[in-house]
Simulated assay, not measured.
Amino acid sequence: MSTLKSPRTLKFVLPLLALTVVAVTTFAFKSKSDAAPAKAFSNTYVYEFTGDASIQSQVEDLSRWQYNASGSSCLSIDAAKACTILVDAAHAANSTLSGSNLTITADNDKNAGYFRVIEAVDDDYAATPTNQPVTP
């Protein structure tokens, strides 16, 4: 093991050590908002609701959610109701969500009389539901 023998070596090593500590501390406490954004929706599948959104059991029925390769903006729907669910590749099923282990929970929008997806979960995974917003 070598020792620092001269003040000259010490002058060289201490600034490098200080720089390393500052760099590590900066990255360790960097907030998520400062971090680079993740790739948007990579390996994500869009399933579109095809049932009657005024019936809770249909919104919660996985077979009523059809795979839509082109995605959906939900803009053609004129009420606050279930529209799409974004599911990652590991939890996606075939043409419908009925092959997945997701559980959908729907809630009634009492103003419009339609059901919206509150959550779509599978143990520790949560899919991203997109409900049609209320249009003025």
Rank of each mutant, 00 (worst) to 15 (best):
M1Q: 06
V121P: 01
L16S: 09
A89Y: 01
A90V: 14
T105G: 10
I77W: 01
Y114W: 04
N131E: 10
K30H: 02
S2H: 12
A28G: 06
N94D: 13
A53D: 03
D34A: 08
Y47H: 13
K32V: 08
L62N: 08
T3S: 07
D88C: 11
N108A: 15
P133K: 10
Q56T: 07
H91A: 10
T84R: 07
I104H: 12
L16I: 11
L10K: 11
A106S: 03
S31Q: 09
S100R: 13
S2G: 10
T44V: 15
P133G: 10
T50C: 03
K5M: 10
A23L: 15
K39L: 14
L10H: 04
N111C: 04
N94R: 11
V134C: 01
V121D: 14
L14M: 14
S31M: 04
D107H: 02
A82D: 08
P133Q: 12
G51V: 14
V117H: 05
L10N: 02
L14W: 03
P15G: 06
T96D: 05
A106R: 02
T9F: 00
V22M: 09
L19Y: 02
T44E: 12
K110Y: 00
A38E: 14
A92H: 07
V21W: 07
N131P: 04
A120Y: 04
T20S: 13
D78C: 00
A112T: 15
A112F: 07
L10I: 12
E119H: 00
E119K: 15
Y125I: 08
T96E: 02
E48S: 14
F12Q: 10
P136G: 15
T128F: 09
V121Q: 15
V134L: 12
S98I: 09
A36Q: 13
T103M: 03
K30W: 07
R64C: 01
K110T: 11
E48H: 14
V87R: 14
T3M: 03
A127T: 14
T103P: 01
T50N: 08
P129T: 12
P136N: 06
C83Y: 09
T44N: 12
A79I: 12
L19W: 03
T9L: 07
